[in-house]
Amino acid sequence: MIEIRAAHDRGNVDMGWLNSYHSFSFGQYYDPHHMGFSALRVINDDTVQPGAGFATHGHRNMEILSFVLDGTIAHKDSTGNIETLPQGEFQLMSAGRGIYHSEFNASQQDSLHFLQIWVEPNVQDTEPGYQQKPFETRQGFVPIASPDGHDGSFIIKQNATIYQVTLAQETQQRFAVEHGRRVYVHLITGELEINGIKLQPGDGAKIAEECALDLVNVGTQPILALLFDLP
């Protein structure tokens, strides 16, 4: 079963300095039919104006992944991390028992575009943690976060694996789904077909009770997507 979460149906909050599209209920946007999917709680598609950003605020017991699509994030948190996160890099902040942080557009001229993703952890009140790095953009599935950190992926406190998916034009890949697992796919660029169902940029796919997924690039642009293998 594959249910499409269309990009144009997402919640939208435009605050001037921030224009955000919410795949799931978040902040001012509430939809009881879209409260998350398995342990995946938030996918926010954020565009931040030059010099603007999120002032210091707190989180607790959440795994927070950021992926910069364009621009640079200036990050600072209460555990002493002061970092910049450029285009193409990922950051995983494990809030654990509590962490405060700020995120700003590091540029005074150019906008910042990034995905903010929240995954609910399966353990509570752990030591806060911070991980950041770029991952290779090879063809197929590159693990970004996993419970055991395999293949150089971040360690995430949940029985979930997050993959970066890259498909060149006129190529396809198969993803085997373990019994009882659920999968969510968020398409960033290109035109993607999953088991015959087409997605456009910004679309998501909630997937359950499927044994395998055939992902096919049916457009003229390379595919960039995130795939969440969830409990």
Rank of each mutant, 00 (worst) to 15 (best):
Q87A: 12
G88S: 09
G88F: 07
G88Q: 12
G88C: 12
G88L: 13
E89F: 14
E89I: 02
F90T: 02
F90P: 04
Q91Y: 03
Q91F: 05
Q91I: 11
L92A: 05
L92R: 04
M93Y: 07
M93C: 11
M93E: 06
S94I: 04
S94C: 09
A95I: 14
R97Q: 15
G98M: 08
G98P: 07
Y100W: 08
Y100M: 14
Y100R: 14
Y100A: 11
H101A: 13
H101L: 11
S102I: 10
S102H: 06
E103R: 12
E103W: 09
E103K: 08
F104V: 11
A106K: 15
S107A: 12
S107N: 03
Q108Y: 03
Q109P: 00
D110F: 06
D110A: 15
S111M: 09
S111D: 11
L112R: 08
L112I: 13
L112K: 07
H113D: 13
H113A: 10
F114W: 05
L115C: 08
L115T: 07
Q116R: 07
Q116G: 11
Q116M: 10
Q116I: 13
I117E: 04
I117M: 14
W118F: 14
W118R: 08
V119N: 02
V119R: 02
P121Y: 08
N122Y: 01
N122C: 03
N122R: 06
N122T: 07
V123K: 14
V123W: 00
V123H: 12
Q124P: 01
D125P: 00
D125S: 06
T126S: 11
T126D: 08
T126L: 10
T126K: 08
T126E: 12
E127Q: 08
E127I: 11
P128D: 04
P128E: 05
P128W: 05
G129V: 01
Y130T: 07
Y130R: 04
Y130I: 04
Q131C: 03
Q131I: 01
Q132V: 01
Q132E: 06
Q132R: 12
K133N: 07
K133M: 11
P134Q: 04
E136Y: 00
E136S: 06
E136N: 09
T137Y: 00
T137C: 00
T137F: 00
Q139I: 00
G140M: 05
G140T: 04
F141M: 07
F141N: 05
V142W: 01
V142H: 01
S146L: 07
D148I: 06
D148G: 02
G149R: 10
G149I: 08
D151V: 09
D151F: 08
D151K: 15
D151W: 03
G152Y: 12
G152R: 13
G152E: 11
G152A: 12
G152H: 13
G152Q: 12
S153W: 05
S153F: 06
F154R: 05
I155C: 09
I155E: 13
I156G: 06
I156A: 12
K157T: 13
K157Y: 06
K157W: 02
K157F: 02
Q158S: 14
Q158A: 15
N159V: 01
A160D: 03
